[in-house]
Write a protein that binds this DNA or RNA. Structure first.
Length: 312
DNA sequence: GTAGGGTTAG
């Protein structure tokens, strides 16, 4: 039985880490006189969750130096960090460790492996783990669907959706991110619309801003810009966020619709006035349209911020 | 048995 104060200490580390305050969690972690498997795992999970994947892997390394053996809970977070960084080599080492130590590959750990390989684009290893899993849930399938979609294999992603549904597993909001972006990659606007409407009607999944983002991408790139704009401004009941605007901008560029791009970029700047990249985006856009006065204006707005080199 | 583990648009 672990000491009582070690348990409460770990609870505190975990509490701060999962709230996103990894800084405080780390302070507590560093202050603690005693650290066990749970302390390390909580801290690594905190870094992974807040997308400080490098820190997560560094800490995993420190954990090994401290001779604390990771278990399947630790490895879920480590694999997530590997997938996030594209650290396939590290991910494979973890996989080998799992096999060597005969760690049971249950749903969560299995899904983490499937996801890590799929994110990297290593579909062979991803499916090897996938096929070896006794129990798969909606996230296991979604990992494959999203992974395939993001690597340009939209048809493959949609195949897996069909297999999943015929296997009796219901798609959720995460699945639909993969499904809709698969439609974007394949360029099937009508099917995208069908899936989008079936989300609510058939699956009871309320579209989130991410799903509208996918639809904007699909419509603008393969439908027409004005329909995409309608989807964005009128149909989307949620306020478009910066990612949606950037999606819109990059999709618009294909059609070189300067007016819409300009409007969108101004909106983006309002949402994220501190992001330097957005000013560069706006300036480049004006430069492309040879609107030199506007280029100067954007630069003026930038001047008090920070030094940025504009592309010629 | 157990304080700690998986999800997403660009």
């Amino acid at each position: 039985m672990p000491a009582k104060d070690l348990v409460s200490w770990n609870t505190m580390i975990h509490g701060f880490a999962t709230c996103g305050d990894v800084g405080t969690a780390r302070q507590l972690f560093d202050m603690s006189s005693e650290r066990d498997l749970v302390s390390w795992s909580s801290m690594i999970a905190g870094y992974a969750k807040s997308r400080q994947s490098n820190e997560a892997l560094i800490l995993f390394h420190d954990m090994q130096s401290a001779n604390v053996r990771p278990d399947r809970v630790t490895m879920v977070s480590v694999l997530f960090a590997c997938g996030d960084l594209g650290a396939l080599g590290m991910g494979k080492i973890v996989h080998e460790y799992i096999d060597r130590n005969k760690v049971e590959i249950a749903v969560k750990l299995g899904t983490s492996l499937v996801d890590m390989y799929a994110k990297y684009g290593d579909i062979e290893n991803s499916l090897k783990v996938f096929n070896g899993m006794g129990v798969k849930d909606v996230l296991t399938w979604s990992a494959v669907i999203i992974g395939r979609a993001n690597h340009g294999f939209g048809e493959h992603a949609l195949d897996y959706l069909a297999k999943m549904i015929s296997g009796g597993i219901k798609a959720n909001d995460i699945t639909f991110i993969g499904v809709l972006s698969a439609c974007s990659h394949v360029g099937v606007v009508d099917r995208g619309w069908t899936y989008f409407t079936s989300m609510n009607d058939k699956y009871g999944v309320t579209p989130k801003i991410e799903h509208y983002g996918c639809m904007v991408d699909l419509l603008v790139e393969f439908g027409d810009t004005s329909r995409g704009k309608r989807a964005l401004l009128e149909i989307c009941p949620l306020l478009p966020d910066a990612i949606v605007w950037r999606t819109f901008i990059s999709a618009c560029k294909i059609h070189k619709n300067m007016e819409l791009v300009e409007e969108a970029t101004v909106n983006l700047l309002e949402l994220e006035p501190h992001m330097d990249g957005n000013y560069v985006l706006l300036s480049n856009m004006y430069a492309q349209g040879k609107k030199w006065d506007d280029v100067v204006n954007v630069r003026r707005r930038m001047r008090d911020k920070t030094f940025i080199r504009f592309r010629e």
